[in-house]
């Protein structure tokens, strides 16, 4: 049975951060990453977030904040109700949910 997650997502470049709301239908068991990808394909393709492996929890790129707590978007499940999604607080913001997570000696 389909449920609805009410996502409040931080958008924008540094200094222009604002929140946007999206209602995301989902089947129980789906991940926050599934929800964000659904938003891109159905609502707004400009939403930026990082991920690579999608299922394996191997790349560790999809870290972000859910209700203030650090999560992997690919292993955290969507829930029927309000969810606040923000970029990591302790890393430099690039845009939307993307932050500078590469080790310092692997950056340009």
């Amino acid at each position: 049975m389909s449920q609805t997650a009410r996502l409040t997502v931080q958008r924008g470049a540094p200094g222009q951060a604002h929140a946007e709301r999206y209602d995301v239908p989902f089947e129980p068991g789906q991940s926050v990453l599934d929800g964000l990808r659904w938003i891109r394909a159905h609502r707004d393709p400009s939403l930026a977030f990082r991920f690579s492996c999608i299922n394996a929890n191997a790349c560790k790129e999809c870290m972000m904040l859910l209700d203030g707590k650090v999560i992997y978007a690919c292993t955290e499940r969507l829930t029927d109700g309000e969810m606040r999604i923000e970029p990591l607080g302790n890393k430099a913001l690039i845009r939307d949910l993307v932050t500078e997570i590469a080790p310092p000696d692997e950056r340009l």
């Binding site: 089947e27 129980p28 068991g29 789906q30 991940s31 599934d34 299922n55 394996a56 929890n57 191997a58 690919c74 292993t75 499940r77």
Partner: peptide
């Protein structure tokens, strides 16, 4: 199915 997360398909 069911949606399996944290593991490779």
């Amino acid at each position: 199915a069911p949606r399996l997360i944290g593991m490779d398909p």
